[in-house]
């Protein structure tokens, strides 16, 4: 599609949507959101970009193959499960650190968030791959 309005809109909406997907990912631990919805929003932002600019340019904007994103996500999710085993505890046991962090106060981070990041990447990668496949047919 070659629409100037859509292209300009996509150029501004794309980073906003990505930012929103990060917000969803990070707020997901205690509030509605999480890796799955975040990943879908991120994929939607790339889908919008693709509708405006075409598949080739979106591939360039994404830099890596969407399946590589999914693979990296899978690896991160497995890693988050393995981290708990060093304590030693069972696979997927949550490990939390509460470290002082400038401005913020206390940074309360744990392996569930890492797992969610993995989910985010897997969902994003697979959804983008789906959209690309349909667009190329």
């Amino acid at each position: 599609m070659n629409s100037l309005i859509l292209q300009i809109a996509a150029r501004y909406l794309h980073p906003l949507l990505l930012l929103y997907s990060w917000f969803l990912l990070l707020s997901g631990h205690n509030d509605p959101g999480g890796g799955f919805t975040g990943g879908l929003v991120a994929a939607a932002s790339f889908a919008l970009y693709m509708i405006a600019y075409g598949v080739e340019q979106t591939r360039r904007a994404l830099r890596v193959d969407p399946l590589q994103l999914a693979g990296a996500g899978l690896l991160i999710a497995v890693l988050s499960g393995l981290l708990g085993m060093f304590r030693p505890a069972a696979f997927l046991t949550g490990v939390w650190i509460a470290a002082p962090f400038p401005v913020w106060g206390v940074l309360d981070a744990g392996t569930p968030m890492l797992f969610d990041l993995g989910v985010y990447l897997v969902v994003m990668g697979v959804s983008i791959k789906l959209v690309f496949t349909f667009a190329e047919d």
Partner: peptide
């Protein structure tokens, strides 16, 4: 450990294959 490795090993291999896609 021994009990989850039958799942983790192929999963990690699959993920690595996806990253080294071509």
């Amino acid at each position: 450990m021994l009990l989850v490795l039958p799942i983790i090993i192929p999963l990690v291999i699959a993920a690595s294959c996806l990253i080294a896609l071509r």
